[in-house]
């Protein structure tokens, strides 16, 4: 049906309109802009992982250069028996650097959890509490774009504390290794580390958003994220200790992330030896369940007063 009213005398839409405004990106930029206004959380949550990254980078750098002298053994030009020994030394360094990166990824899990929980826990629930979703959804913003904008926000903060420092360490390793040997010999570790950091951020972001969508306040969501992630690991640790079976580790979110890290970076398995695809399936299922939960809650935002 059509309605003709007296609107004809009213001002029609003027100015330049983007036919399909990138609403998810706009939302992401606005949320980031707002988050960067509060300096203390940024300082507390971003400085430690980056200091750790710098420290690990320095350790990596020192493995390649300071222990061997600034000049690369391969470029020193000495052949014969010395060359074999030097190649062996470099191989040892590569392994040590590999271990450093794996160690950093283990540390970065905690940083990622803290950053993602802090910046992500309030996104959906605070919108809902304040009614801000009413402002979004009375505009050309789809629910998918709303989710996308929030997910990009939370994932960006996770990436800043995980992917960023891993990239830094990787770059230092590549450029300080003789003849870029780390890139040539251990490229799979770099890819694995970046892949793991991405999975870490994706999974934790989905969990945090899911719990945020379920909560009525940021504080509850924050407590919920920590309770879920750390609680699951506490239970898995308890079960492992009492049952003496490492497979109980599959109950813990962080344990599964660790298992995937070890797998992707071909690290020595210290605690867990179950099939890593189980962890992929578990974490994938969690992310999927969170996604469904978020979709359901966003659908219900239609009818939340």
């Amino acid at each position: 049906m059509t309605a003709s009213t007296h609107t004809e005398i009213y001002r029609r839409l003027k100015g330049q309109l983007e036919p399909h405004p990138p609403t998810a990106r706009l939302l992401w930029r606005a949320r980031m802009h707002v988050a960067f206004k509060r300096k203390l959380p940024l300082l507390v949550l971003f400085v430690p992982p980056w200091i750790s990254g710098i420290v690990f980078s320095f350790v990596v750098y020192s493995k390649f250069t300071l222990e061997q002298g600034v000049e690369s053994p391969l470029t020193a030009g000495n052949g014969g028996p010395m060359a074999g020994a030097m190649v062996g030394a470099i191989a040892g360094q590569l392994i040590q650097v590999h271990d450093q990166i794996v160690m950093f990824t283990h540390v970065s899990r905690v940083f990622a959890l803290l950053a993602i929980a802090w910046f992500g826990a309030g996104l959906v629930c605070e919108d809902q509490r304040a009614g801000a979703h009413l402002l979004y959804f009375s505009r050309p913003v789809s629910r998918f774009a709303y989710f996308g904008g929030h997910f990009l926000t939370i994932a960006s903060f996770g990436a800043i504390v995980t992917v960023g420092p891993v990239l830094l360490i990787g770059l230092v390793a590549v450029f300080s290794s003789p003849e870029y040997s780390f890139l040539l010999e251990k490229w799979d570790v770099l890819v694995g580390a970046l892949g793991y950091a991405t999975i870490n951020v994706l999974v934790l972001s989905m969990i945090a958003l899911g719990i945020s969508a379920l909560s009525s306040r940021k504080t509850y969501a924050l407590a919920g994220v920590f309770a879920f992630v750390l609680g699951s690991d506490a239970v898995s640790g308890m079960m492992r200790a009492t049952q003496g079976e490492s497979d109980w580790g599959m109950l813990g979110v962080m344990s599964n992330l660790r298992r995937i890290a070890e797998w992707l970076m071909s690290a020595n398995r210290q605690m867990f030896d179950w099939n890593p695809w189980f962890s992929v399936a578990i974490l994938g299922g969690l992310a999927l369940a969170s996604g469904l939960l978020i979709a359901r809650r966003l659908r219900r935002l239609e009818v939340v007063a």
Partner: peptide, 20 residues
């Protein structure tokens, strides 16, 4: 509804951006 961390001008500008 309105976001506490934004200024009034930022909030309205942002919402106009969402309009395109």
């Amino acid at each position: 509804a309105i976001w506490d961390d934004m200024t009034g001008l930022e909030a309205v500008t942002f919402l106009m951006r969402l309009h395109g």
